[in-house]
Amino acid sequence: MFVLSGYEYLLGFLLVCSLVPALALSASKLLRPSGGGPERRTTYESGVEPIGGAWIQFNIRYYMFALVFVIFDVETVFLYPWAVAFHRLGLLAFVEALIFIAILVVALVYAWRKGALEWS
């Protein structure tokens, strides 16, 4: 039993959004000249010529940033209900949320000290 209101607009938006790429691609297919020489496959104007394949090994630094992001993303999800229900919860909840944040600040300090936040 679905009770949330306002989601018919979301559905409408989704339908329109799914139409946009299909319409754009088909319209450009109708309008553009077909064919074209070998230049069509080259890099456009001031683009840099690609070197090597795209299947290269990435640097571990990307993983460190993603890792820190995951942890603080989850923290956001926990703090959001607290912020919305703040007026009903009172002082005790404020202290508890501060403890929660303090523990995660320890995590932030650790990541900082270990250099996980630097692009060294």
Binding site: I60, M64, L67, I71, E75, F78, L104, Y110, A111, K114
Partner: peptide, 17 residues
């Protein structure tokens, strides 16, 4: 949950670095 996140972060940083 915050302690778990702290532990996960410390462990993952040690393992990955």
């Amino acid at each position: 949950a915050s302690v778990l996140l702290l532990m996960a972060m410390v462990g993952a940083i040690i393992l990955a670095r």
